[in-house]
Structures are given as structure tokens and as C-alpha cells.
Amino acid sequence: MKKFLAALPIVFAVSAVQAADIVDTAKSAGSFNTLVTAVQAAGLVDTLKGPGPYTVFAPTDAAFAKIPKAKLDALLKDKAALTKVLTYHVVPGKVMAADVKPGMVKTVEGSSFTVKTSGGKVMVDKATVTKTDIAADNGVIHVIDTVIMPK
């Protein structure tokens, strides 16, 4: 009985730990600082912390660095344009890499992007998917190497 009671606090501590939502998962990865800043500037934090599920094609800091600084700064200050760009990276539902099929995919922004395979790599518009299936408790993140822009 003493052993059982001694183990009880450990069981409660472990069960209190939860998986992180999409925003917290992106923050803890350390390579999405610009994306997290943009999500905050666009006022989308609560949405991406919500129940979802969402699939986010997340550009890395290096992907954002490909955008000329003046253009990126202007985008970060234009909430409507920023929201349009960010929601273009989000697909409703939880789509794991094994379930991704080539073709047009409707985004939360409202328009669609093209998914295709080329040389064994998955492309989203002109971005290459570099890492897949980063699980969050309200969806999944797939890493891309370029910021994609709605038409």
C-alpha cells in the first residue's frame, strides 16, 4: 500500500501534461519565430490555439528571410494582407503526410493551392515540404521552405 501511495503524485503529474497546440508547438520548435510573430500581428493566436483541427504548412524563419525586408515589414503592418497570407497556409482538418494527395487544396483563406510531387518531394505551390507530421493537440504542422502567397 505504501508503494502505491508513493507513486500516486507521479501518476497525477504525468496525466496533467498535455500536448501543445499549434502555436505553442511552433514556438517550442525555435525555427518559426517570424511565423509566430506574424500570427500574433494578425490576431490569429486564439484561432490557432482553438479546437481545430488544422493543418498548417509552416514557413521557417529562413523562408521568411527570402522575402525582401521592406516587403516583409509592410506585410507585418497590414493586418488584412497578413491574415490573407497566413490563412493561405492553413487547411481545415488534420491532414497527415500519408493522406496528402496531388491536386488543388482549399485553404482557410478561401482560395486553393496546388500540391504536387516532383522528384520524390512534395511541393505546395512553389514551396517544398521539408518536414512532415509535427503533431499538435489541435492539428498538424508540415514545414515548408518558402512563404506561399495567395493569387
Rank of each mutant, 00 (worst) to 15 (best):
K3Q: 15
A6F: 10
A6S: 12
A7C: 09
A7W: 13
A13N: 14
V14S: 15
V14G: 15
V17H: 15
I22D: 02
V23F: 10
D24L: 11
A26H: 08
A26D: 08
K27M: 13
S28F: 11
G30K: 03
S31G: 11
F32D: 02
V36R: 04
Q40N: 05
Q40Y: 08
D46M: 01
T47H: 11
G52D: 00
G52K: 00
Y54L: 01
A62Q: 15
A63L: 08
P68L: 01
P68A: 00
K69H: 14
L72A: 08
A74D: 06
L75K: 10
K77T: 11
K77D: 10
K84Y: 06
L86M: 11
T87V: 07
Y88V: 02
H89I: 02
V91Q: 03
G93L: 00
K94H: 15
K94Y: 13
K94V: 08
A97K: 15
A98I: 12
K101T: 05
K101N: 04
G103I: 00
M104T: 06
M104C: 04
V105G: 03
T107Y: 01
E109F: 05
S111W: 07
S112V: 01
F113R: 00
V115K: 00
V115H: 00
S118V: 13
G119Q: 07
V122K: 05
D125N: 01
T128G: 13
D133C: 14
A135R: 15
A136W: 02
G139E: 03
V143N: 15
I144R: 15
V147I: 05
I148V: 14
M149K: 06
P150S: 03
K151F: 14
